[in-house]
Amino acid sequence: MKTPIIAAAALGALVATGALAQDVVRIGTEGAYAPYNYINDAGQVDGFERELGDAICERAGLTCEWVMNDWDSIIPNLTSGNYDVIMAAMTITDEREQVVDFSDAYYPPTASAYAADAEDANYESGVVSAQTATIQAAYIAESGATLLEFANPEEAVQAVRDGEADAVFADYDYLVPLVEDSDGALMFVGDEVPIGGGIAAAFRKGDDTLRGQFDAVIEAMKADGSLNEMLARWFGDESRVPAF
């Protein structure tokens, strides 16, 4: 009963013409990487990047819309124009910079960390889990440990709880709430590893206007301290507060 409506609307979309209304900037995110981005109980995208993205759009006078996309295909969908910006805890890397342009970092160069279920976990040469196609997975592949890959970060953490992996290697800030709320079942082991060059929004190559608008607002937010305030609220704890 819903079918004809959908078919008609789809047909409409295929043949739609007419002048462009005010452009909507579509922001793609994964929705599975709290506190950066996640889906809240109301089914909406939430998290640090949601708040930051909305603030940027407001200051730049843009109308923005949030779109969820699988991590694996998040860049191809940007380059083929299904959305205009990626804000998905994406670390700036050389590889990625060959296909997308990054804004100024809105999160300082990050540390990745190992979390395990025991202090003496063998994270150096044991089995370490990580999310497929992340810089962390690439790092473990080159280290002395055996890499165990999972499709999403949660399953990678779960592997430690299940005893499948000795440790999980992920973004420090992603692990913090999981470790703190685990009642001692999970703990950080080893040193933090600084990899990557900060987290930034990604744009199609050559999309300089939009990137310029984002850069200007990010710079202003760094200058007036509102970005640091936001970082402290989402990521701050007793031991450390990320800031510019």
Partner: peptide
């Protein structure tokens, strides 16, 4: 089932390259 030490089947490597 997770892949160990990047040893996977044909689809695993195909998606590795698609990703890279």
């Amino acid at each position: 089932f997770p892949a160990t030490s990047q040893r996977g089947d044909a689809l695993y490597y195909a998606s590795y390259f698609a990703d890279k």
